[in-house]
């Protein structure tokens, strides 16, 4: 889930210790730069090559394919921006994008808010035995494949699954239903799988950030007579700006680019209610064999992710400085 993280934050907050006079150091570096230039480029070459061949070239091809109608086998026809117009026109594709944005609520907001709340309540005993055990447990969803999360939860959500069993046990049998088959609950249900996966990571990241806050700040606030709420909003939240930006970025990308969980749990159903761009690209390209249309949606998805994520990085950088 966090493999496509972004941002420029560095975990380190201490400065690199500098030795030697700054002046001579700077000159030495300059001279060396010229000498090392060639070697450096040579060292970058293998990584750059892999990146160009397997990322940038396919990216460029996605853009190129998106202007054609092509079934992958026979000749292609240039169609200009038709494929992009179709994204707006066809409810299936535009709907998939809206669904992805709705997923942000579950993949992002819930884990971050709940993570903040929990981390704030437990920061007082962050080093206790219970907290240490919880690290291991809460990380489990992070290390298993999303496919496995999808399989587990599909079963929990089934009409005779555990979710309904629990509801009946606490007297809420009336709301029991086949969660993934119901038009109103399918998307939230799928979204909560994402929340389950992300919660542990977000909580622990925020907790780690909280333990770095100078306790003197809190003491000062207490002396000023601040209550826990003001403390939280005046000290904790601003200090965590970077961690929050990271959590939001990681989970927003996971929401917009979701595929694994949906593929396994609902295949986009019922009635396209959980269809997301990732799955629609897959269906268009490999099942309908509309390569151009699939590529246009892929380009739109890449652009959307950038549009949403870049502003977040500003927040992140401000927090850094």
């Amino acid at each position: 889930m966090n493999q496509r993280l972004t941002g420029r934050a560095s975990a380190r907050r201490e400065d690199t210790p500098a030795l030697g006079s700054p002046e001579s150091r700077r000159r030495a570096i300059k001279a060396r730069r010229l000498r090392r230039g060639g070697l450096a480029l040579l060292l970058v070459a293998p990584a750059a090559l892999a990146y160009i061949v397997f990322v940038l070239r396919p990216m460029a091809q996605s853009i190129q394919f998106s202007f054609y109608e092509w079934n992958g086998v026979t000749e292609s026809t240039w169609v200009g921006l038709d494929n992009y117009a179709a994204i707006l026109r066809e409810p299936e594709m535009s709907g998939s994008i809206l669904n992805a944005f709705q997923l942000i609520i579950y993949f992002s907001f819930i884990p971050v808010l709940l993570g903040l709340f929990t981390a704030n309540t437990i920061r007082g005993f962050a080093t206790s035995r219970l907290a240490i055990v919880s690290r291991t447990v809460l990380f489990l969803p992070q290390i298993i494949p999303l496919v496995a999360a999808g399989i587990m939860w599909s079963w929990l959500y089934a009409s005779n699954g555990m979710v309904n069993q629990v509801l009946e046990a606490i007297g809420l049998g009336g709301v029991a239903r086949a969660w993934l088959g119901d038009f109103d609950t399918a998307l939230p249900a799928v979204g909560l799988i994402g929340a389950w996966v992300a919660l542990g990571l977000c909580m622990l990241l925020l907790l780690a950030g909280m333990t770095k806050i100078d306790p003197a700040l809190y003491e000062a606030a207490r002396i000023d007579g601040a209550g826990p709420w003001r403390e939280f909003f005046a000290i904790t939240l601003p200090s965590l700006r970077q961690e929050i930006a990271v959590c939001v970025t990681v989970t927003v990308i996971a929401a917009l680019a979701s595929f694994d969980i949906i593929y396994i749990s609902t295949q986009g159903g019922p009635g396209n209610r959980t269809l997301v761009p990732g799955l629609e690209i897959y269906r268009l390209a490999f099942f309908n064999r509309e390569i151009g249309q699939a590529s246009a949606l892929a380009v739109a998805l890449m652009a959307l992710v950038l549009l949403v994520v870049l502003p977040l990085q500003r927040l992140n950088r401000e927090g850094d400085s």
């Binding site: 990146y51 070239r57 460029a60 091809q61 054609y68 092509w70 000749e75 292609s76 240039w78 390569i291």
Partner: peptide, 15 residues
């Protein structure tokens, strides 16, 4: 780098 990737890709129409 981006430019060279584009050149690589833009040789011909798909298919």
């Amino acid at each position: 780098m981006v430019a060279s990737a584009l050149v690589l890709a833009a040789c011909s129409a798909p298919g």
